[in-house]
Design a binder for these strands. Structure first.
Lengths: 236, 236, 236, 236
DNA sequence: CATGAATGAGTGTTCATTCAT
DNA sequence: CATGAATGAACACTCATTCAT
């Protein structure tokens, strides 16, 4: 990732050389961002000490402030770094998917679990929920870069199912939330109450997701006799 | 000294009159609890300053500690006042409910919305999710005083429905989460991303809940042909 | 002690009637002073809470301030209350004592232990040592009312012994401290380090005093060959 | 990573060079320790404000906590710096001492006076007496770090004297207190009543100590005919 | 006289941020 | 570029003192 450091030009590079600074922005900050993600997810924003982030990244506290002008900026950078990129691939996969819509939906839930839910990244939605109010700008950013593409992806799946007669006609706006809510609740639960000992009913995420999927299918099933969702879609 | 004490009215105004004390303990703390709820919901537990709570209630910092021995106790009192204190009545209502189990479930969702979801109290679940990790004692408290009774209440409804043949047999542990997750997600959404302008799809909570209810019913329906939840219940 | 309360003149007694206040100064304050002595001795001045003093005396915090304008004044009153009186009797006893001077000295040490050292009053010297610097006026008072008569009493005993040829001639000024220092050190030790668990060598006060007495006698003995104190008395 | 690490100069300037850290830890803290000693002695432990210590040392409050993790640790450091740290040297001196035991004891008293008694450090025993009860952890520390080694040192001197036939056999436990009590009483007196004007009999410490030493010697003298301490030693 | 609710200044400690080297 | 020593604002909680009743 870094080019080999050439001692020959060290003396020549002006301290404020923008190019050099640019390069750095990719180098050392990477370790800082990783450390920050770990700690923010683990302890939350307020309880994370910048010194510990720096230490975990192997640099000094002063160095951290060389790259991020404040703890808040660090937080924003962490969120930016860890969320957007995946949707492109995800959309492609959906595009190429050839199975039934229920299978496609199951595939979505499963890959969410594998790529987000079961990983450290699952801490980010929780992070955003917790801090959104104190970082409205970040919240807006998250809406545009994460919530919107995510919702769009799910909406596409649902629409495909309806179009192919595999799902009954539904109100897509709320249908999306029906898929999202259980996933996001699970992510948040994992990183808050679920991480505190003494839980009455220890969730097994895989089972939780299976049950939620069954539930979804019975709500979406074109053959189901239930009244659910059988209302004229309010928005396309 | 001021005026001769008239024994006749001793019962009404004796300095240690328990009733008077009761009134006091209910009077000023009431304003403190209201102020605390506002601020906790608005800024979170850690970011709320006890002094500001006091100021908003119109008393001094010292007075607050006269009624609540610590910030954590204040928080617990807020939770008791707004959530756990209601389970008794709620349980009674359920006990006396005579309609069908679907109606009972709908009644639960509706009263949750009216009493919690639509009020400032809906900020509390979000708050707990955000702060649980950093305040384990509060998390334990919340588990015992809120999550447990809440889950038990829902489980009772589900069991009644199954027993009366109105719901298909389900795994109750996950069934409870199927009811809870959408509610809690809504509460959290309201107090985080939902409270920041510029949302792509503005949820209308009532509609969201209606759709979620339909969904639930189709998943639970005894007559439905879908595969959902049709697994042997794992716990009674 | 108090005159019976005549309801007839209650209305007439001006609230600030000094006589009435005087009366009170003997009545309720007695309990307050006792409670304060206990607590000051037990926990020191700073660590004693006026509220606890009041509670132990069975009155409210406000009432305490009715009698003592501040915590410091309470402290002064406690010290004043508990120190002077005993010397008159003590001096008389010494006056009448007819045994040998060593026996008289032993008698002094023993009665100090019985009347002061073994009682709560032993806390007062410790109190004074601890707080003298912050209450210079009290320190002066203590010097005049306690240290001075106490020293004089001991000096009288020593002089008697020298006059009767039972003690060798000594410098009385320092001789007095030779008697006092072990006693006062014991009192302070009892109320500080001695009251904390885990002492290496648990003192038994009676044994400590016996050994100190032997020591004193060997230093004072007219027959002893040692060089001790055999210098021309420098004062008195 | 920044520059190739040259093993050759690691010992001199590595950022984590323990020697450099050592120097730092001795530099500024020295001023803090001096300021703390002054203030603790002057006002006591509880009444001393860490901010004032910092201010007097010319640094900020935060800096103080950079070097001492708490006020109690600061106090312990003061005690170590001024008292317990000296026992090693003191023990060595005793070890090498070749004169008679009475001379050795006199040497001990004199060096106590020069190194502790006559210096600000003499305020520490008084301080401990005053605050021990309210700071049990400090009391324990003081017992282990000061009282115990101090007693052991004196006990060694006494045992040597008895072993060499220069002192008569004594109960060492109380013998130690016979040496200690006058010293500690002097220290306390200096910092409490002795520091308030208007003393009846102004002690001259050097004379006080000389007299106490004579007294001790006559009590310990092997040739003395007195009864003092001539009891079978209770502990070896 | 007596109460006890109310006050608010004061304390030890933390931690994001700065800056001289 | 990197460091880490220094900063100082901030915060929960205490408690002597006041005063309306």
């Amino acid at each position: 990732m870094h080019q080999p450091i050439d001692p020959a030009n060290l003396a020549e590079a002006a301290p404020d050389d923008p190019a050099r600074r640019e390069r750095r922005k990719d180098a050392r900050p990477g370790e800082l961002l990783a450390a920050a993600l770990d700690l923010f997810v683990e302890k939350g924003f307020a309880a994370t000490r910048v010194e510990e982030v720096a230490r975990r990244a192997g640099v000094s506290k002063g160095t951290l402030f060389l790259y991020f002008s404040s703890k808040e900026e660090l937080f924003k950078a962490v969120v930016r770094e860890n969320i957007s990129g995946r949707f492109a691939q995800w959309n492609e996969e959906i595009e190429r998917f050839e199975g039934s819509s229920p299978d496609m939906l199951r595939y979505c839930l499963n890959s969410w679990w594998e790529r987000i839910g079961a990983t450290k990244a699952s801490g980010i939605p929780k992070l955003m929920m917790s801090e959104a109010r104190n970082f409205p700008e970040l919240a807006r950013f998250y809406q545009h870069e994460v919530m919107q593409p995510g919702s769009a992806l799910i909406e596409r799946v649902l629409k495909r199912g309806v179009a192919r007669g595999e799902f009954r006609p539904i109100d897509f706006k709320y249908g999306v939330y029906m898929v999202l809510a259980p996933l996001l609740y699970l992510a948040m639960w994992k990183h808050s109450l679920g991480s505190c000992g003494g839980n009455l009913a220890q969730l097994v995420p895989e089972e939780y997701l299976a049950v939620q999927f069954d539930m979804l299918m019975s709500g979406l099933s074109a053959t189901g006799a239930g009244p659910a969702l059988a209302r004229p879609p309010s928005s396309a």
